[in-house]
Design a protein around this nucleic acid. Structure first.
Lengths: 152, 152
DNA sequence: GTATTTCATTCTTTTTTAGTAGGATTTTAT
DNA sequence: ATAAAATCCTACTAAAAAAGAATGAAATAC
């Protein structure tokens, strides 16, 4: 039941982007260095994010990425789905790929179980936005600054 | 974010066991046929289930498996953990294997995010018991029987 | 003693993951 | 114009994990 690194990296990278985009386009170069994630790998991840309209880009010197929408409108669920596909914990819940393939399909007790699990997971992941993570990150940073001040 | 087949098979096989254990020990042979799961694979799965004390076994002719405790006491979470290990959606939440390895560890916004997701998942999976699934299975069966009766 | 069953380990195949490599294209600064 | 900085795009590869097969031993009922 693990998230892949793609999913984790995507969330971390987008949080980094959210925290730094006030000064304009953010390059993957910069994210790569701050977050210690391979540049090539980030490119692939952002390729998917762009296709799902989560980020927009600008080429050339001084270019990079920005969020395509307000950070309040982008949920962690959106991000995970963009880079990993459906959150479905079992393939038979993924309608596109398993339509009619499961011999049990109807009247399957475990099917319903996984369905409810999926609803819980999506319910949570869709309830958290990048903006919320940004706020949390800022709160943590403030606390650290205060702490550093006291130690001086 | 997929469950492995081990986890799904384990739940299905144990539900099958729960539904059939009133007549005594249930052989993997029988489960294998009813659920269409490879016998060898079931053996491996039940090996893990036994180590975690979820089932008990009897060798030899007429042998097989029984639940080690009352079906009310065994949660789906227990089953998944027994065959797949911790439900942790990211490795840094799995204390045994990642203690101190994550450079962010403290003050990591995404770490907290995954922690909360984990709590949701475990909260749900631990709230459902094999006995509950059994009841649901019986309800579905009754409905089907009624339907079949009407069509005659 | 034979058939049936679990027990335990090892091996193999397939799939997925996690990246690497390399070049093409676009844009901007000078 | 040109060089540098960025995205874009596709293909490739190595490692790990998942899925399951194979094998043989041990226990038990009849």
């Amino acid at each position: 039941m693990r998230l892949s690194t793609r999913g984790r990296y995507a969330v971390r990278a987008l949080l980094d982007l959210t925290l730094h985009m006030e000064q304009g386009y953010v390059s993957l170069q910069a994210i790569s260095q701050r977050e210690d994630i391979s540049l090539h790998y980030l490119e692939q991840i952002f390729h998917k994010l762009k296709k799902q309209n989560i980020v927009k880009s600008k080429k050339g010197l001084g270019g990079g990425y920005l969020l395509a929408e307000d950070a309040k409108e982008i949920s962690i669920g959106d991000v995970i789905r963009a880079v990993e596909g459906p959150i479905a914990p079992v393939y038979c819940l993924d309608e596109k790929c398993a339509k009619g393939k499961c011999p049990r399909e109807k009247n399957c007790v475990t099917h319903q179980l996984w369905k409810r699990l999926e609803e819980r997971m999506e319910g949570f992941l869709d309830s958290v936005s990048l903006d919320q993570l940004k706020e949390e990150a800022n709160t943590i940073k403030s606390l650290q600054d205060i702490k550093a001040g006291c130690q001086k």
